[in-house]
Design a protein around this nucleic acid. Structure first.
Length: 177
DNA sequence: CGGGTTTGACCCGCGC
DNA sequence: GCGCGGGTCAAACCCG
């Protein structure tokens, strides 16, 4: 895929070079209150939406995200939230995705030996949050959940250099949590 | 000294 | 009402 940030932006720009991208193991995006009329294809309301399993977002995925972005812009007053979750097999947890984050919390989660870390986007007026934790069943995987849509561009152009290694394509559903 | 992190306390929703 | 678990706050702390 191109960078996560360009995927989320309503007008996806040019693709990054392959060496500037990171291989994701899974990529899920879901909207808590999405209306079926806003989605095409087999997706249903409140359903997790597997976007890609090979580490590259396909055109359908981008279309879904773009549609959802527009939908959210129309309904920010309703409290609808966009969530994007993906899993990477990586040694490091805090990957530089081009945005500036501040850590504001850390919690041990039940039935997991690994803590969950909470981050907030530092850009003023942007309320995007993300949660990072290691998978409870395999600590070599990092689960990252983004909540919200950035209302600004990536502040650090060219900073999206992820080097997660040995990605695989196992399906993983966060709905089991 | 300023900005980011740590960490215990606090808040809130939910199930019983 | 109470306890539990997840999420957030904020003071203390750390570090460049």
């Amino acid at each position: 895929m191109s960078s996560y940030s360009s995927l989320l932006s309503s007008n996806s720009s040019e693709n990054d070079k392959p060496e500037d991208t990171f291989e994701i193991d899974d990529y899920l995006t879901f909207n808590e209150e999405v209306q079926e009329s806003h989605l095409s294809g087999p997706y249903k309301p409140n359903q997790l939406l597997p976007v890609t399993t090979d580490g590259h977002a396909d055109q359908r995925s981008v279309n879904v995200c773009n549609r959802k972005n527009k939908y959210m812009e129309q309904d920010t007053s309703t409290g609808r939230k966009w969530k994007v979750a993906f899993r990477t097999k990586s040694e490091i947890e805090t990957m530089d995705d081009g945005y500036k984050w501040r850590k504001y919390g850390k919690k041990m989660v039940k039935n997991s030996p690994n803590p969950r870390n909470y981050y907030r986007c530092l850009t003023e007026g942007c309320s995007v949050k993300k949660r990072v934790e290691r998978a409870r069943d395999d600590s070599s995987y990092v689960l990252t959940t983004y909540e919200g849509i950035h209302n600004h561009n990536v502040p650090l152009q060219g900073a999206c250099s992820y080097h997660a290694v040995n990605s695989t394509s196992q399906y993983h559903s966060l709905s089991s949590q």
